[in-house]
Nucleic acid binder design. Structure first.
Lengths: 296, 296
DNA sequence: TGGTTTATGTGCAGTGGCGCACGGAGTTAT
DNA sequence: ATAACTCCGTGCGCCACTGCACATAAACCA
């Protein structure tokens, strides 16, 4: 039910504005014959005369004047829209949605807060969820992911940093059970993951080195591990980035290289080149230097 | 500086609204390949992505959402405009500008007032001027003209009525100078036109029958003749339609057939078929039956 | 009055845009 | 698991639209 030929309205609008077919053709950058044909077609479609033709040009009828004002408004709107969109590629405004593994929230949130302060027109969101947010659906602008999530060709992946974990326990646990070493892991109590075949390297190590019966508590979130450790439930992996001095935890084994997880910055192709995403990526890479992680 | 390709905005708007290229193509009545090409071209022009492409369709980016709202407004505007224009051909609204020789004002004005009452959305204007109003410039919708003004093929001319004039004087004049007859016209005083070679038949008659020195007063408007006659300045032509009983004028010679002026209704081709003009013409032809003129 | 400018209007030829058909990829359903 | 469905993407051939050239008419100027 909507009107079909917007370009013809545009042509007629220019004719009404200029008063002549030739002038409109000049403005539109087309031949005046094209303008005449557009007007004729439009008038035929509408079943009414838009212009009175005479030797000095085209004078709009009442319908033509109506079209003139509607066309003028639309022209303004479209021009402004084009300006906004053309400019917006270079602006850092609107929403910035970041999705991340939740082990980084403690570092990401302050960083994003600072980024928002630098760009007051920006609204930042951090979404952490176990399910993979799909960037191709526009659910996030930037993702921080663990392990190489490289299958989709629409995603641009670049190394971010290496997050290392350590094996921690409370002093109370150590007092009760002693410190483990490579030979007596099976006489200790561990905290593990509910996920059977997790791809996280430290979880694979745990599965291989520690009998399942020694894993006395399981959770699906790394974040929960810390709470379990603090509750003296056993020995558990905690992200080194999340460990604070005041936690007073004991690192029960020296960290191993193979526990580390490489983290990747992922952006969707369509958004990667925008200033908003680029600025944020640059900011993140700068910020990561100060984090207790190994930058890539 | 204004944006050039309105049809592409329309296409992109429908894609943003539908969420899929196929859906938009269906609504637009074009092939989905055309939709893809429009989107690609528009994105290239704007230098920004409007949509994120994925297997389920196209999801608008922020720029695409901006376009969606602008496009939605434009679509509304254009649809309403088309509705107004399509309907307007059948409506009697807006302005109705009538131009006429001023000898008919006394009859036309009441008629136009009645016509306006019947069509409250209408604003009527009566313009009388010696210069010919040019209908092709949209200066008037309907013209009442004397003599066949037939040159322009864009004007539709139809007979309206025959306006007759009479030769009048006041009783005071007759008391002083007596009634003229065919033989002693040169011993009377006449009122004539300032226009040298008027095409009005009664003025031509005057020029031929009465010596110039007998024309003691000249005016360019027929309307002024009546005032001159009333002021006892002499014998003058007055439109029979304008003469009232209470004027107490004396018809000094029997009216001659050749004094009559044929009046024509003239409309511009572009406006002639509109309901507004047609309705008014019908109304006028009906009304003229009651006028003190001879209908055509 | 006659030449010049500026405007609209139209047949003709070329090209850009369109539909078509096919292929690929992802999602859903049985 | 496989089949059916839906949607996007692209090469190809054709048609409609465009630009061009020319005709025509009106207005302006000297």
């Amino acid at each position: 039910m909507s009107f079909d030929h917007w370009d013809e309205i545009r042509t007629a609008y220019q004719v009404a504005r200029m008063g002549t077919v030739s002038g409109a053709a000049d403005v539109l950058g087309v031949h005046h014959a094209t303008v005449i044909r557009h007007i004729d077609a439009l008038e035929g479609r509408l079943g009414a005369k838009l212009f009175q033709r005479h030797a000095r040009g085209y004078t709009p009828t009442e319908a033509g004047q109506d079209l003139l004002s509607v066309g003028s408004r639309a022209d303004d709107q479209f021009t402004q829209l084009a300006g906004r969109i053309k400019g917006r590629g270079n602006e850092v405004t609107g929403d910035l949605i970041v999705t991340s593994i939740n082990g980084l929230s403690g570092l990401l949130v302050p960083a994003m807060g600072e980024f928002q302060e630098r760009h007051p027109d920006l609204r930042v969101q951090l979404v952490t969820d176990t399910r993979l947010f799909r960037m191709e659906y526009g659910e996030a602008h930037v993702a921080i992911r663990a392990g190489k999530p490289g299958d989709s060709p629409d995603n641009i992946v670049q190394p971010f940093c290496t997050s290392s974990v350590g094996l921690y326990a409370t002093q109370a646990y150590v007092d009760a059970h002693g410190l483990p070493d490579d030979t007596n892991l099976d006489s200790h109590r561990f905290i593990g993951s509910t996920i059977e075949n997790s791809r996280a390297p430290f979880l694979r190590w745990l599965t291989e080195q520690v009998p399942a019966e020694c894993i006395v508590f399981r959770a699906n979130e790394l974040d929960t591990f810390r709470h379990a450790v603090r509750a003296n439930m056993g020995i558990g992996f905690i992200s080194r980035a999340e460990v604070r001095e005041e936690d007073a935890l004991v690192e029960v084994l020296p960290p191993m290289e193979e526990w580390s997880t490489k983290l990747w910055l992922v952006t969707h192709m369509d958004l990667h080149r925008t200033a908003k995403v680029q600025t944020f990526l640059r900011f993140l890479k700068e910020k990561v230097q100060d984090w207790p992680v190994e930058p890539a």
